[in-house]
Design a binder for these strands. Structure first.
Length: 853
RNA sequence: GCCCGAGUGGCGGAAUGGUAGACGCAGGGGAUUCAAAAUCCCCCGCCUUCACGGGCGUGUGAGUUCGAGUCUCACCUCGGGCACCA
């Protein structure tokens, strides 16, 4: 009998918070505002323990900030467009809209019992026409400001299903359903001009001082600013020169070929005339369009028969090759190869028997390049054996500068700054996304839809029946009535754009929409000014680049169009990237030795190993992996809440691992969390009995204030696991405390407050049991009394040559020379010195003493 | 392939360059109980020693430092991202 009945306690306090509208955010100029946001979920069907962890972290911050006197905005919504809804409709019938909204309902029902302090009144899904209509309106604004444009771009094409494939749907270069070899196809698509913001997005990273360094570094590398030389190679046959871009112009004397991308205009021109070139180009472009696929593919080359002149030695002719590892999207789509100082070029030259010419060698270890290219850091000084501007010893950096200056002076090349960042292609040839609000008219061309006609809503039916998703391809493309419309400009019959937007568009401004979710414009400036920026954003590291960079771009574009104040162009003040929840995988083998996976609840763990509960068969345990349905290593939060209550789930996901790292869900860990919470309840019940347990109040108060300090620091620094360890420690102290009833009551009430961000229901219950006023959720956060945090004496370890040999306990402010004297009198030190004198004596006040012999 | 991380007892982890292993789990011992559950108390890195103690120890190898889990370099393993997964 614990008396700790979560099935009664938790709904009771959830009702109390709802009644008091504790978490409904209203503008209040009198308080500092605080906007905390967790990356919103995709409505996959059911909530996942990973969601519990993510939202619990945000909730800890939200409740803590509320208690410290902030006006808190903590909203929740759904990132609801995307492929899984269409896949579900394809696989098992039904409609993406019904599937999505059904999932949202289920997930909201599952999230509410967790007791998150969320403002549910602001909830929306990105597939709500009210949301995506505003997104369409912004698209038209962007179009007007020149932030969106159309150009040709390459997509993965499945020649059997006759559809465009997402990268995820290309497996080993083949379509995931048809198994057909994927081809490339060029389509005219819409792009956001994010590349115009390359420099600004890069420079502003420095100001993101509350972002993890690793995320900033990844974004910097992604934008990829480089300085290099652009110049032409003249063709021996007099054709159009080939423009190349290189970041290592200093190695020009080591050039042995010129390479062009299979997508380069010259490669395409040659392919038209030569079936062999066409065959090569098509072979070289098989197998998916990801950078990874291109980089990992076998390096293939085709000699075009064209030769170009070396810019410094017109009689030196270099062959032009088409090579599959050259990206048309970066630089000019053409390079010169310098095999001595680039491993990829070297592999290519060895394969096709092209010359290898060194331009510099190591200063300490000069040797000829064999199978390993010599690629020192750009800052390392090297010995130049082949440089046109007369360098002898210089670093790569210096040589690049010298080369660019030389080329500009002679007029055959110019230094240019280049970025790796490409424009953001937003067109998707799919149904379940935000329709791009333009119309194609034979007479007027591409015409924006009128704003009064927004939203351009997705059609639900087709010919009076729900759309049939079993037919491959984009249903909008073949929709009989939706597609046909009138031109907003001339009024003649026209056709709607049938592409929808990338779902990254939806998630690039939802944080701004939360500040005024029902506004009839994308945002409301007053609300945006009040609530923005997001003070604390929390989400997975997998979004370190794309989502966060796109959102940074969008905030700037929205500012340009008058939808956000200038102060909000960096929308996320602080970022925290949390780890995943993992779980062991349980596997048995079938008769063909193929793996068969089992749910954790079907497995019994014994000391000797794991067995299937039903059959007793031995189970192989694969330690800790990301939870996935196919591996069945999932834990359903609903079952955990049913068994232990929400507070146990919340406590456990925070307790065992640092938040930025993965945490492994274990049944034993959840059990332990529940036991602890039951214990706190029991201690509270005991104290509520009213008896004194002794008179040692000072010791308890000192421990309490130390805990207030440590837990507060832990929450402020995202050290939730450490904060929880401190709470365990204090609970042990309180349980044993020989103190008065008054001191113990104060201690348990403060303990409840400190636990409230993590276990809000238990905290309210304890608070109420002790006769606390109002809700813990609204009670001001306790303050540590500084005078109780310092000890009068301190124990100093004594090291001899860095190894701990002894310790002395001294007064906190004993002078250094006194400490030295005491240290030298220590038995262990005397023994080590054996009568001699120490070489050095290091005393770090309050820390350590080190005797060097 | 390229970019970015992480690696500490049987396990999850703690540790402003200053006593490595806080706190929790598992394990061992004890109390309570007719018995069990629950609860409470104690022990718990490895090797060595009757004991006191000593040696080793933070993925591997080097380095900086009076002192390194922490800083630097190289390597190994695992994880995230690579622009149409969200």
């Amino acid at each position: 009998m614990t008396g700790y009945d979560t099935k009664i306690i938790e709904p009771k306090w959830q009702a109390a918070w709802a009644e008091a509208a504790t978490f409904e955010a209203m503008r209040d100029e009198a308080k500092p505002k605080y906007y905390v946001l967790e990356m919103f979920p995709y409505p996959s069907g059911r909530i996942h323990i990973g969601h519990v962890r993510n939202y619990t972290m945000g909730d800890v911050i939200a409740r803590y900030k509320l208690a410290t006197g902030h006006n808190v905005l903590h909203p929740m919504g759904f990132d609801a467009f995307g492929m899984p809804a269409e896949n579900a409709a394809m696989a098992s019938g039904g409609h993406p809209k019904d599937w999505t909204y059904g999932n949202i309902d289920t997930m909201v029902d599952q999230m509410k019992p967790l007791g998150f302090g969320l403002d549910w009144s602001r909830m929306f899904a990105t597939c709500d026409p009210e949301y995506y209509g505003q997104q369409q309106s912004m698209f038209l604004d962007f179009l007007e400001k020149g932030l969106v444009y159309r150009k040709e771009a390459i997509v993965n094409w499945d020649p059997v299903d006759m559809t465009v494939l997402a990268n995820e749907q290309v497996i080993d270069g083949k379509g995931w359903r048809s198994g057909a070899e994927v081809e490339r196809r060029e389509l005219t698509q819409w792009f956001f001009k994010i590349s115009d913001f390359s420099e600004e997005l890069l420079e502003a990273i420095d100001g993101l001082d509350q972002w993890p360094a690793k995320v900033k570094l990844m974004q910097q590398n992604w934008i990829g600013k480089s300085r290099g030389l652009e110049f032409d190679f003249d063709r021996v046959d007099g054709g159009d020169p080939i423009k190349v871009y290189t970041t290592r112009p200093d190695t020009l004397m080591g050039a042995s070929f010129v390479g062009i991308s299979p997508d380069h205009p010259l490669a395409k021109e040659l392919a038209e005339k030569s079936p062999a070139v066409a065959a090569f180009n098509s072979a070289a472009t098989k197998g998916g369009t990801t950078e990874e696929a291109l980089e990992k593919a076998e390096k293939l080359g085709y000699y075009t028969g064209i030769e170009v002149r070396h810019p410094l030695h017109p009689d030196w002719h270099l062959p032009v090759w088409i090579a599959n590892f050259i990206l048309m999207d970066y630089g000019t789509g053409a390079i010169f190869g310098c095999p001595a100082h680039d491993q990829r070029d070297l592999d290519f030259c060895r394969k096709y028997e092209l010359p290898v010419i060194e331009t510099f060698q190591s200063l300490d270890d000069p040797k000829m390049v064999d199978d390993v290219a010599f690629v020192p850091p750009k800052t390392e000084k090297v010995s130049w054996i082949n440089h046109f501007a007369g360098l002898t010893v210089a670093s790569g950096e210096e040589a690049v500068d010298a080369t660019i200056a030389f080329a500009e002076e002679q007029g055959w090349g110019k230094g240019v700054v280049n970025y790796r960042l490409r424009d953001w292609g937003l067109s998707r040839q799919r149904y379940w996304g935000c329709p791009i609000p333009v119309v194609h008219c034979d007479a007027c061309g591409v015409v924006p839809e009128k704003k009064e006609n927004l939203p351009v809503e997705l059609p639900y039916d087709e010919d009076g029946k729900p759309i049939d998703f079993s037919v491959p391809g984009n249903p909008l493309d073949r929709h009989p009535s939706w597609r046909d419309c009138v031109c907003p400009s001339c009024g003649k019959p026209a056709k709607r754009e049938t592409d929808t937007m990338d779902t990254f568009v939806d998630s690039s401004w939802y944080f701004a929409r939360f500040t005024a979710p029902r506004a009839t414009t994308p945002t409301n400036m007053d609300d945006a000014k009040y609530w923005m920026n997001v003070d604390q954003y929390i989400g997975g590291i997998e979004h370190a680049i794309l989502h966060l960079l796109y959102s940074r771009f969008f905030a700037r574009a929205m500012h340009i169009c008058g939808h956000l104040p200038e102060s909000a162009i960096e929308p996320f003040d602080a970022l925290f990237t949390q780890g995943m929840v993992t779980h062991a995988i349980y596997v048995t083998r079938d008769e063909n030795d193929r793996p068969v996976y089992h749910f954790p609840e079907d497995v019994e763990i014994h000391e000797s190993g794991a067995r299937l509960g039903a059959t007793g068969e031995d189970v192989e345990v694969v330690p800790s992996a990301k939870m996935s349905k196919s591996k069945k290593n999932v834990v359903d939060p609903v079952a955990i809440i049913d068994q232990y209550g929400a507070d146990t789930a919340r406590w456990f996901v925070l307790s065992d691992s640092p938040p930025e790292r993965d945490v492994e869900w274990t049944a034993a860990g959840a059990e332990a969390a529940f036991k602890h919470l039951s214990r706190v309840y029991r201690i509270s019940t005991d104290i509520a009995g009213g008896a004194d347990a002794g008179s040692e109040d000072d010791a308890l108060r000192q421990a309490l204030h130390r805990t207030i300090h440590d837990v507060t620091m832990g929450i402020e620094s995202f050290g939730f696991n450490v904060a929880i360890a401190k709470l365990y420690g204090f609970t042990n102290v309180l349980a044993k405390a020989k103190a008065s009833h008054a001191a113990r009551r104060e201690a348990v009430m403060t303990l409840a407050q400190l636990m409230a961000p993590m276990t809000p229901h238990l905290a309210e219950e304890v608070w109420a049991m002790q006769g606390g006023e109002g809700l813990v959720a609204n009670a001001p956060w306790p303050k540590a009394d500084e005078s109780l945090l310092v000890d009068d004496t301190v124990t100093l370890p004594i090291q001899v040559n860095g190894k701990r040999r002894s310790e002395i306990t001294v007064s906190k402010d004993l002078p250094k020379d006194e400490v030295e004297k005491l240290a030298l009198e220590d038995e262990a030190v005397k023994k080590a010195l054996a009568g001699g004198q120490p070489k050095k004596l290091i005393v770090v006040p309050g820390r350590i003493v080190n005797v060097v012999i």
